[in-house]
Design a protein around this nucleic acid. Structure first.
Lengths: 223, 223
DNA sequence: ATAATTTTTTAGATTTACCTAAATACATAT
DNA sequence: ATATGTATTTAGGTAAATCTAAAAAATTAT
């Protein structure tokens, strides 16, 4: 079934608000969507009649299983497009959200599954948020310092804590950037330096000092 | 200025119909857009008030310069997305039109200009139709047999006339497919074979017989 | 427990993009 | 030149998604 962009935005907003509060209020939704409470009430009635959510007047709202499924599909699209914009088109991670808000409403499922493959099945978007898979399963992502990354586990760089030019220069030299997929292949006891492996590139090592400033996200047993 | 998807579809349809007939009739538009003549009349009034077209009741319609500019932007987006879907995501050229109809309404100009660069500034879409540049200039495309392609001019493969497995095998072996960018770097008088150059690949030669079955599109002095 | 405040819903409009049915303008054929 | 047929417009209506203002329900404070 296909839903209007407006309905999709409601579903997505409810999904996100539900992470904090079991039940979502009309006012909270109105604020999140920059609209008026009266408009929210109208839309909730429509979405309820489509069985996407449970709603009793004055009692707040909660997505049904079907509603959640749709929310996860939209979030999947949003985050994959963000990844595409940053990794392939060279956008900064601050400027992609708005564009992804539009792209997430493109309907073709085949498109998004092929995009996923084209991007190498990333597990997180450029902000480090997990990307649901084609079945809507959200991978359990752990975000840690590169120093603590277990060996031979693929992870994506999500942030760097030190922004000095000296450090950025070193990162650039090693082709490490936000979004880079890498893994630690060895650790050397002598100086605690790390051997880094990146897809289709020769191995190289980085110092403990550098690694201490890099944060990565990786998939901790999905399901 | 931003226009609704619906308005953009009207503008695009008028642009295409204008290629055949100087002035476009209400009925022709209704047919092209699968809608009713009365709906067309309504919309024409709105678009006229926005100065995107010239319209006098009963006298048909014609885009203004501004209307044409917008049409070309939409066509640019449509064709670049088609190219992306085929070249990067591996879709067949028959199945991309529908998806591109949605993608063409994504508004970010920066997105489309970066996509253009990412794709290597293709001059034609997978169907061989020319892609307007960032200023809306439509390159003059000539479509000819590879045999007749002038030397050292980049061209895109748009079709192959013989579909035998033997020929397709040979094409695959040479990494030639619909959409491949190539140029003829030399011709050998002895057997009329051609030396082919492709970006970031070693040169190779193909027989006159093979070249006779390959059709390409290239830019003939734009402007 | 009642008053005051906040939240939510209802009622009634508006805008966009459609529709059908009827009226009008234009084109063509005799 | 008039009749007939086709194309186009007008008139009036609908559905989706929004809005404001007012009413009603729920919550909080005294």
């Amino acid at each position: 079934m296909k839903y209007s962009s407006s309905k999709e935005n409601y579903i997505k907003a409810i999904f996100h608000l539900q992470q904090d509060e079991e039940v979502v209020s009309t006012n909270a939704l109105a604020k999140a969507l920059s609209t008026r409470p009266a408009s929210v009430t109208d839309m909730l009635k429509k979405l309820k009649s489509q069985k996407l959510l449970q709603y009793q007047p004055y009692k707040g709202v909660k997505l049904t299983a079907e509603g959640k499924k749709i929310a996860l599909q939209i979030i999947r699209k949003h985050r994959l497009w963000e990844y595409f914009l940053v990794e392939k088109l060279g956008f900064g991670w601050e400027e992609v959200h708005e564009i992804a808000e539009e792209l997430e409403h493109i309907s073709s499922k085949k498109l998004i599954d092929r995009l996923d493959i084209f991007l190498g099945n990333p597990k997180t978007d450029p902000h480090g948020d997990p990307i649901p898979d084609s079945q809507g399963r959200m991978p359990l992502i752990r975000q840690i310092c590169l120093l603590e990354l277990p060996e031979n586990i693929q992870a994506d760089v999500i942030s760097v804590s030190n922004q000095s030019t000296a450090m950025l220069e070193l990162l650039r030299h090693n082709h490490i950037a936000i979004g880079t997929r890498l893994e630690v292949s060895r650790r050397f006891a002598f100086d605690h330096s790390l051997e880094i492996r990146m897809p289709s590139q020769p191995f190289f090592t980085i110092s403990e000092q550098l690694a201490a400033n890099i944060y990565v996200a990786f998939e901790a047993e999905s399901k």
